[in-house]
């Protein structure tokens, strides 16, 4: 009997670190991949993921689940954290200092060619994404990179669905077909 996000979040909101740990288990990889798409660095993605969960805990009274999933809200938290990363890093500096560093705890997966290739590709895409406004870039990464529906992206960013559509449309016009192809995923329009 696996607890739902709603149940775990309810317990987290009441202060249960154990429930929060289960949510970390469930969504850390999704947040991590999103953070990677935003930073182009696996190492930065680890730190950003950590800050995102710490910030999520701090803001746990404000969470909104979308279709029973906490992930869109977490991606919204990650978006804000990335925009204000220096301030967030200062807030959690004591905790971040305790996190493992890649050079201290080597992981063989880091050395894999696939991960190195992914960093090269992600950074090339970021060059194009960085030409967009922050708002258009957020929508493009959520929908084209992470494959969120319009509704999920709207929930993540706290904006209307129509705004997601218009921002995504604008981003598509400005991104090259190569970059869009590399981002690989299409928004799941049918579920929006």
């Amino acid at each position: 009997m696996s607890a739902s996000d709603e149940e775990l979040w309810a317990n987290s909101a009441r202060g249960s670190a154990a429930a929060f740990g289960q949510l970390f288990d469930r969504h850390a990889d999704g947040v991590y991949r999103y953070c990677f798409r935003r930073t182009g660095s696996w190492s930065d993605a680890e730190e950003l993921t950590s800050i995102t969960f710490l910030e999520a805990w701090r803001s746990r009274g404000k969470a909104h689940l979308r279709d029973g999933s906490l992930l869109p809200w977490l991606l919204g938290v990650a978006t804000n954290v990335d925009r204000n990363r220096r301030r967030a890093a200062r807030r959690y500096s004591a905790v971040l200092h305790r996190l493992p560093r890649p050079e201290v705890v080597p992981d063989l997966a880091d050395a894999s060619a696939a991960r190195l290739d992914a960093e090269i590709t992600a950074r090339a895409i970021l060059v194009e994404l960085n030409r967009l406004t922050d708002r258009d870039r957020d929508v493009a990464i959520l929908c084209l990179g992470q494959g969120l529906t319009y509704a999920e992206a709207a929930a993540a960013l706290g904006i209307p669905i129509g705004t997601v559509r218009s921002r995504l449309s604008r981003a598509r016009e400005r991104l090259s077909s190569t970059a869009q192809g590399e981002m690989d995923v299409r928004p799941r329009e049918g579920r929006s």
Partner: peptide, 8 residues
């Protein structure tokens, strides 16, 4: 990382 966050 999980351990550090849950502990924090």
């Amino acid at each position: 990382t999980r351990e550090v966050i849950v502990d924090a």
